[in-house]
Design a protein around this nucleic acid. Structure first.
Length: 181
DNA sequence: AGTGCGATTGACT
DNA sequence: GTCAATCGCACTA
């Protein structure tokens, strides 16, 4: 699922228009993964992970940054994919306004930045990303880019597992250069 | 009720 | 490249 989502679109209907971007970086949090929020079973925060697949699981990291994930397993199993970066595609002026910068490269490069650019917060936790609404996943049929793979970013547990995927050579991918080859 | 810790970011050298 | 801010949540007592 993490690999499949590379090249797909995250779309958002804002009061002033449509905004969205192409997914260029994801991370998988799999069953039995000590770094995954679902590892110790359901809690109030992570209950969306244990619901049906295809839902938005949103949580706050470091007290400030919203993280957008896609739940990926049947009810009762807590796995998901973190969306880590978007290449801005539609409604760039709206994203610039939400982010307070005109540097296109900084609009959605990083999981906290992309949620700020698209005004995604806990209101969307649990929504169906395949259904009608103000936040959804889409495809425009574009060919999948060449996909690179590396260890995940910012983890202390399970730090060796190569479960991060990214569009190779894309300037909107986050992370250190050493991981983006 | 108290404590420790992040699936990060932005400012700064 | 380094580094501190920041706070909700899960865990322990």
């Amino acid at each position: 699922m993490a690999r499949f989502l590379i090249g797909k679109l995250v779309m958002r209907r804002l009061p002033d228009g449509l905004a969205g971007g192409r997914i260029v970086e994801t991370e998988a949090y799999v069953a039995g993964d000590a770094a995954g929020h679902g590892f110790n079973g359901p809690t109030p925060r992570n209950r969306t992970l244990f619901g049906p697949p295809g839902r938005a699981y949103i949580y706050i990291a470091y007290g400030t940054s919203m993280m957008l994930n896609v739940s990926c397993s049947p009810v009762g199993v807590g796995t998901g994919v973190l969306i880590r970066a978007l290449e801005p595609a539609i409604g760039i002026a709206l994203m610039e306004s939400n982010r307070g910068t005109k540097r296109i490269r900084d609009l959605a490069r990083g999981p906290g930045r992309l949620t700020q650019a698209l005004d995604i917060d806990l209101r969307f936790d649990g929504i169906d990303l395949c259904g009608p609404g103000d936040l959804w996943l889409a495809t425009d049929g574009a060919n999948a880019p060449k996909i690179g793979r590396s260890v995940r970013i910012g983890l202390s547990k399970e730090a060796h597992r190569p479960l991060r995927f990214f569009a190779r050579g894309n300037a909107f991918v986050s992370g250190p250069k050493s991981l983006n080859a």
